[in-house]
Simulated scan of single mutants.
Amino acid sequence: MMTDPIADMLTRIRNASRIERPVVEMPTSNMRRGIAQVLKDEGYIWDFDEVETRPVRTLRLQMKYGPNGERLITRIDRVSKPGRRIYCGYRDLKPVLNGLGIRVLSTPQGILSDRQARDKKVGGEVLALIY
């Protein structure tokens, strides 16, 4: 039984990035779909789609690498965990590595990156840190 599906998703992406795998598959959910959309909008993956499989639908991410095969995702960490939730207001969202990385937030307006959250002036739970 999986107790933290977001950590499972981030671990799958981390492992795929380390071995330069072109495609990552995982069970789909609305939260995972939102995180995948943020990764696509911020340029960390090429695209994602849902595949009809049994017993659950599968989310397939097409990973993105540099022109010489260098990894775009060098570190991906879970910030807010089931045992300890971390919340942040939009005023407290400083750029990660001077804008080279992002935070993924769960806000009342959906799953957003820290850049989008600052623009919309909305805070929320910090799900992940990516750079």
Rank of each mutant, 00 (worst) to 15 (best):
residue 76 I to Y: 09
residue 105 L to D: 00
residue 127 L to E: 07
residue 40 K to P: 05
residue 109 Q to S: 12
residue 8 D to H: 12
residue 109 Q to G: 03
residue 73 I to Y: 06
residue 45 I to D: 04
residue 44 Y to M: 00
residue 40 K to I: 08
residue 60 R to P: 00
residue 129 L to D: 05
residue 72 L to T: 08
residue 65 Y to D: 06
residue 105 L to I: 01
residue 12 R to C: 04
residue 44 Y to A: 00
residue 131 Y to V: 02
residue 35 I to T: 04
residue 34 G to C: 07
residue 99 G to Y: 03
residue 14 R to F: 02
residue 106 S to G: 04
residue 45 I to V: 15
residue 10 L to N: 07
residue 78 R to T: 12
residue 17 S to C: 11
residue 51 V to N: 04
residue 12 R to F: 02
residue 48 F to A: 00
residue 102 I to K: 06
residue 43 G to S: 09
residue 24 V to M: 14
residue 4 D to S: 10
residue 74 T to R: 15
residue 27 P to E: 12
residue 90 Y to S: 14
residue 104 V to Q: 01
residue 37 Q to E: 15
residue 68 N to Y: 11
residue 48 F to Q: 00
residue 61 L to I: 11
residue 116 Q to W: 00
residue 125 E to G: 04
residue 123 G to M: 03
residue 130 I to W: 01
residue 131 Y to G: 01
residue 43 G to C: 09
residue 37 Q to T: 11
residue 49 D to Y: 15
residue 60 R to G: 01
residue 99 G to W: 03
residue 114 D to M: 10
residue 56 V to K: 14
residue 111 I to F: 03
residue 89 G to D: 09
residue 105 L to C: 03
residue 51 V to G: 01
residue 96 V to L: 14
residue 73 I to Q: 01
residue 94 K to V: 12
residue 74 T to W: 05
residue 41 D to G: 06
residue 130 I to K: 10
residue 115 R to A: 06
residue 79 V to Y: 02
residue 116 Q to S: 09
residue 45 I to F: 08
residue 29 S to D: 07
residue 76 I to E: 12
residue 49 D to T: 05
residue 128 A to V: 06
residue 11 T to K: 10
residue 97 L to A: 15
residue 2 M to L: 12
residue 79 V to I: 15
residue 67 P to K: 15
residue 109 Q to F: 07
residue 39 L to E: 02
residue 8 D to W: 10
residue 14 R to H: 05
residue 58 T to M: 13
residue 10 L to E: 11
residue 19 I to D: 01
residue 128 A to R: 05
residue 8 D to G: 12
residue 23 V to A: 11
residue 105 L to M: 02
residue 114 D to P: 07
residue 18 R to M: 14
residue 25 E to H: 11
residue 14 R to E: 02
